[in-house]
Design a binder for these strands. Sequence first.
DNA 1: GCCCAGGTGGGTA
DNA 2: TACCCACATGGG
Length: 216
Amino acid sequence: MKEKLLSLCHRLAAHFGPLHWWPADTPFEVVIGAFLTQNTAWRNVELAMAGLKQAIPLTPQALCDLSTQRLEELIRPAGFFRQKAQRLQLFSTYLLDRHQGDLAAMLSGPLPQVRDTLLRLKGVGPETADCILLYAAQRPSFVVDAYTRRLLKRLGLLTGDESYAVIRALFMDHLPHQVDLFNAYHALIVEQCKIICRKRPLCESCPLRPQCPALL
DNA sequence: GCCCAGGTGGGTA
DNA sequence: TACCCACATGGG
């Protein structure tokens, strides 16, 4: 399994080149994106983020200063805007109250503990927590998402109904805990899946053939 | 018009 | 623990 994961990573990297990822300018912007992208196409997240960025600086204080209704309007294109607005403000309030708005401080400390703290916040599930840890805090916590499941299922490494924890453990147990590796690996999986995984039947029109990792 | 997208939480059995 | 459903917009 370890060899298969590493082999996949190397093949993806060879094709796409090194990717350094999460489209955001600041760590707090990563957090906002992590909430907004929940079950949402990234295109819609971009629309919402652009509007939000135009209206306010992307800081926890600025988010808290907005009325919830105004925030809802601004992030509307990302969908689920009522719950996302509420959860963004709850997160921001927590960050301000407990850490004076210092995200780096909030995310420092033993990784498992910080992860548990994140998971206790409303609207932060395992994927959102790992996104924040990996892409906002630069900490080695592997992100499992729909793309990861899809690609690994295509490769026959998963049946597809494994739990988040099981899939994450697969990576955490077999790969060295390096931020750059986790970052690049997840980014490569997403880029690969954007191209091939939604095509049916399997990869028939995949532009990467015959290099497509799913066909090797 | 229909289906899906870089999930999460709450309710029920 | 294991399902089921609500949450909502925009693009193919």
